[in-house]
Design a protein around this nucleic acid. Structure first.
Length: 213
DNA sequence: GTAGCCTTGAGT
DNA sequence: ACTCAAGGCTAC
């Protein structure tokens, strides 16, 4: 950690959710684009996919502004709803699809045959912290955030995370949790994300209105 | 510390 | 009343 640190705030409640947005949704409007893991296709209509991608791009822009330096540890602020991550590595590419878990690695989910955790590939147990994950990654993310865990990677922060190796490197596992989009507010974030598009991209309001119809 | 199960509370 | 997700509990 010789490099100077830049705090990257992942504020869990960055947007005003009191805009009365009629699009305030439930799990049927996951913010994650389909290339992350394997959200059920039925959960995305074209408008929702568009929204998801917009959020993805927006997040990318926000994250890129803050990730310029290298570090190997995550730290947490004492705020109830905020996590400060001491800048993640340059190879930490929020802007890209979820690391090594490509869609080609995933089983077909067209008929709801099986859905896998985008973090470790285990069977999902439901929506947790914003997206479909397994029970263990849900618990891992919960423990990490609630206990303000600080992990380090003994390797080069590129550890492969799967069902059998997910215990080996907590740093890389948590990093992957963040990469795939896990966040504290869960279903409530979906409202905030949509509100964010309206606030930050007024020209999309027409599109949102069309989606709502 | 991990992960599965259970309880609780909010939303519909 | 039902569903779902967050958090608690606990065996390992």
């Amino acid at each position: 950690m010789e490099n100077h640190s830049m705090l990257l705030s992942l504020n869990m409640s960055p947007f005003n959710a009191n805009s009365g947005d009629s699009l305030a949704g439930t799990q049927a409007s996951s913010p994650m684009p389909p290339q992350y893991g394997s959200p059920p296709i039925s959960h995305y209509n074209s408008c929702q996919q568009s929204l998801a991608m917009q959020h993805h791009q927006q997040t990318t822009m926000m994250m890129n502004q803050n990730m310029n330096d290298l570090d190997t540890s995550h730290t947490f602020s004492s705020g109830a709803n905020s996590i400060s991550v001491v800048d993640m590595s340059a190879s930490y590419q929020i802007s890209g699809p979820a690391t090594s878990l490509t869609t080609g690695d995933l089983p077909d989910t067209k008929d709801g045959i099986e859905e896998v955790c985008p973090v470790c590939g285990d069977k999902v147990s439901g929506y947790h912290y914003g997206l479909l994950t397994c029970e263990s990654c849900k618990g891992f993310f919960k423990r990490t955030v609630q206990n303000k865990k600080v992990y380090t990677c003994v390797a080069d922060r590129g550890c492969h995370i799967d069902k059998t190796q997910r215990k080996r490197c907590a740093f890389c596992r948590f990093q992957k949790c963040l990469e795939v989009g896990m966040k504290l507010e869960g279903k409530f974030s979906l409202i905030q994300i949509r509100v964010a598009h309206v606030r930050l991209h007024p020209r999309h309001t027409t599109h949102l209105r069309n989606c709502a119809d």
